[in-house]
């Protein structure tokens, strides 16, 4: 596997955005439920996957994972199998969903890509938490339905707005 300069740089910078969302708490949106916060820290990984392909998506997810592991305030994320591994798949599944639907409708593809990426994060993190014995299986549906749905909506809105904006910027109709 070789990485082009482009892939290295975009993965790095989107990874920085993921870290930024975490350290400034901008990536957490308070939701009244057990876990307290919905997160949008995984959105850079989705963007990476959709805009630059699965490798960038996976790398951004990896950085997000490593960061949440190193900064773990919840012991659940002190286990790399829960914190890091599931995050690698966010960008990959988002990319697959997006490319599959792009010929049909590009906006639909963006929304579905963001949705699939978000659910990958929620389901795999909770799933691995349950498999590793940190979480009881009974929390799966309540968290997926409350946090997961909120995150799906936010991630879709941001992805669509951003990709549309970037397309315009590339065409030169808006100044960056």
């Amino acid at each position: 596997m070789s990485l082009s300069t482009r892939k290295i740089v975009i993965s790095g910078i989107l990874g920085a955005v993921a870290i930024l969302l975490g350290v400034t708490r901008l990536g957490f949106i308070p939701v009244p439920n057990l876990s307290g916060n919905a997160t949008i820290m995984h959105v850079p990984a989705i963007l990476g996957g959709i805009m630059e392909g699965p490798v960038v998506g996976a790398l951004v997810g990896l950085i997000f994972g490593i960061f949440s592991f190193l900064n773990a305030t919840i012991p659940l994320f002190a286990d790399p199998l829960v914190a890091v591994v599931p995050r690698i798949f966010i960008g990959i599944t988002a990319y697959l969903a997006y490319t599959a639907l792009k010929p049909v409708n590009s906006y639909l593809a963006l929304v579905v890509g963001a949705t699939v990426g978000t659910l990958t994060n929620t389901v795999l993190v909770l799933g691995s938490g349950i498999l590793r014995g940190y979480l009881p299986a009974s929390v799966f549906w309540p968290i997926t339905l409350t946090n997961g749905l909120a995150e799906v909506v936010i991630a879709s809105v941001i992805t669509v707005a951003l990709v549309a904006g970037l397309e315009k910027m590339r065409k030169g109709s808006v100044a960056g």
């Binding site: 910078i13 989107l14 920085a16 901008l26 009244p32 809105v157 941001i158 951003l162 904006g165």
Partner: peptide, 24 residues
């Protein structure tokens, strides 16, 4: 509330990410 807070994030995140891509 939650919906309002989400909406507030968007005018901050979009310019941030646009600039980020420019820098990249």
């Amino acid at each position: 509330n939650f919906i309002q807070r989400t909406k507030q994030r968007i005018p901050i995140l979009i310019p941030l990410l646009m600039n980020t891509f420019q820098r990249a």
